[in-house]
């Protein structure tokens, strides 16, 4: 990055090619102001270079510490999450008592959160993001960052529940009902606060019924009805257990779908 330095380490500003070279005034305050201005104009790449130059030329000024934070923010906005996390780790190690340490932890958790894959794919990044967000909530409970972190943790937990449901539905489509029960039970037991629980309970009712365990199906449906009375899923479960009751309209498969289902 910025400043073509000669072999022997002296900063050769003579043939400097980076944007920071154009700046006449190299004082830390000027550089920091230029960096903030570049950020506001969404020129994140250039902002990153200015903050790195500031940190290298004036490593001891108080501006350098803020510059490290701002360059991490610039990297974050350019979706370069691994670099942002690297800079933030160094910031947290060097300045654990800095007044913006809460923001550093929060930005690091956000960088991990942005790398979450959708529910069909590997969820290790989700687990990493959950741990980082939990860390922010534990360290700085009252800050605005903690509130946003709690919201994001719910969404991340929803992702993990979504993965379990996808695997459960896969096994159910293959009619491997024992495997499907295991996955739906994990959603009901470990992800109670997500919005997948009604569907999981309904799926359990469907499977217990098709396995001939009527009382188990009735017990599961009653739990679903008690906790989520208005949910269309309860309507479907109720329809399964009491002959004649109409399932929720969204549930009735179309004629073509039913015909296809019988053939295949």
């Amino acid at each position: 990055c910025g400043g073509a330095t000669g072999w022997d380490g002296r900063l050769g500003s003579l043939f400097d090619s980076s944007p920071t070279a154009a700046l006449q005034d190299r004082s830390p305050e000027a550089l920091y102001a230029a960096g903030i201005q570049a950020l506001q104009e969404q020129r994140y790449a250039q902002a990153g270079q200015i903050f790195d130059a500031l940190e290298r030329e004036h490593p001891f000024s108080t501006w350098a510490t803020n510059a490290k934070l701002m360059s991490a923010y610039a990297d974050y906005m350019r979706n370069r999450y691994t670099e942002a996390i690297g800079t933030l780790d160094r910031f947290i190690q060097l300045h654990p008592a800095h007044r913006d340490i809460a923001y550093a932890h929060y930005l690091r958790a956000l960088s991990l959160y942005e790398q979450i894959n959708d529910a069909q794919r590997d969820q290790r990044s989700t687990e990493l993001a959950m741990a980082a967000l939990q860390d922010v909530v534990n360290r700085f409970p009252e800050t605005a960052y903690a509130r946003d972190a709690r919201l994001k943790m719910d969404l991340a937990r929803d992702h993990l529940a979504g993965r379990e449901m996808n695997i459960g539905r896969f096994y159910q489509r293959q009619r491997l009902l024992n495997a499907a029960i295991g996955r739906y039970r994990r959603v009901v037991e470990q992800y109670q606060t997500t919005n997948h629980v009604p569907e999981a309970l309904h799926r359990l009712t469907e499977i217990y019924l098709s396995l001939g365990l009527r009382e188990e199906a009735a017990r599961t449906a009653s739990v679903l009805g008690y906790n989520f009375p208005g949910s269309p899923w309860y309507q479907d479960s109720y329809a399964l257990l009491t002959p004649g009751a109409a399932p929720s309209d969204a549930a009735r498969p179309g004629l073509l779908r039913r015909a296809w289902g019988n053939i295949f």
Partner: peptide, 22 residues
């Protein structure tokens, strides 16, 4: 199944000759 940052989980799971509980 972990490490599938691109491939969907079911594409790998359907190749398994075993299921959970077997």
């Amino acid at each position: 199944i972990s490490g599938n940052t691109r491939t969907q989980d079911r594409v790998i799971r359907r190749e398994f000759r075993l299921a959970e509980g077997d």
